[in-house]
Design a protein around this nucleic acid. Sequence first.
DNA 1: CCTTAGTTTCAAAGATTTTTGAAAGAACTA
DNA 2: TAGTTCTTTCAAAAATCTTTGAAACTAAGG
Lengths: 196, 196
Amino acid sequence: MTTPPSTGKRSSRSRPTRASKALREGQNRFVSIWGEMGSSWGIPRTMAEVHALLYIVGEPLNTDQIMERLAISRGSASMSLKSLHDWGLVGRAHKRGDRKEYFRAEQDVWQVFRIITRERKRREIDPVLMALHDCRDVTGPRAADLESCETDVESHNDRLDRMIEFIELIDSLADQFVSPAGKGLQLAVGLLGKAV
Amino acid sequence: MTTPPSTGKRSSRSRPTRASKALREGQNRFVSIWGEMGSSWGIPRTMAEVHALLYIVGEPLNTDQIMERLAISRGSASMSLKSLHDWGLVGRAHKRGDRKEYFRAEQDVWQVFRIITRERKRREIDPVLMALHDCRDVTGPRAADLESCETDVESHNDRLDRMIEFIELIDSLADQFVSPAGKGLQLAVGLLGKAV
DNA sequence: CCTTAGTTTCAAAGATTTTTGAAAGAACTA
DNA sequence: TAGTTCTTTCAAAAATCTTTGAAACTAAGG
């Protein structure tokens, strides 16, 4: 799948070329940007950085390489990798004659965001929707008549219903994007994008 | 805009009816859910709770009412309200013969999410795109020939370009949603939703 | 101009989240 | 089985983020 032994940056212990130094710098910047972004969206910075490193390097790395590259502890690396694996953003790989475990990040950007969408929907949106429905039940069934004409309760229910309706729409959009047949959305989105 | 003096929940110091207790409970639940959700998406829990309270109560509240209702300090309330006002999610209001300042949350759910989208785009996505472009520059112009045939640099650049392209697409989608003429997206989204 | 009611600010305290590192656990080899 | 190598776990430490509360500030009323 990847090219042969890859005559990569510094395979033969040669001194770094100008290009390989730029590459290193580019990778480091990407890692920082992604880490920063992750943390502003509620994802642990280190987890995002590990992901960024694996994505941008393109080929599998082992725990020691990741630790060294990001200057983090073994425990932290292991935990971030576990989370990334749970999300499905990172897969395990092995190299012949090397007992170490290697990790490879999904390389298809669309797939990356489909996975992120799927997981955030599952972990955050769906539970919120559940809770909102429970919350809605507290103030009675639709068009209820608890006492007689409790307009406060009615407008409360309207506000809840509008919010629930909106979030359900987002939820179903996420479904579209995530689904294997989600190419539909991909296409539609492309068209919309053009129609600026 | 709102109904008269509003014969609200407990205007005349009467004992709470069953319905008004349910209403209170429903509001509290909504506040908790929204606070929880905010914090999982990188928004301070209290700020999200203040927003939730103002949204679900529907009518303007003053700082003391918010402090009491959420059991938070004056400083915290003031800071959250400032942020919400900066975002544009909350407006100031005044009542005749009352020197206190009142705060009212935007009530249109679509508008709420348009605002959130606009602000997150402005504060988080756009800066990331800038940084990614700078990062891209580090490894030379498109189809560069830094040394000769540095395939590592080339594939690095490809990965960056794919990521940038995707985020730019999201960015322009966000534009569509945010724009006043964004009804287009609203519509398209509605159609897509149906086409499940 | 002074008083008073209300609001904002910000350093320190408190709470929460993240990282570390060492010990326990697994998996392989001889 | 014992030894070796690598991985995971988790309690404590560190870092980060949030809240508090009292002082500074602002504006309205007298």
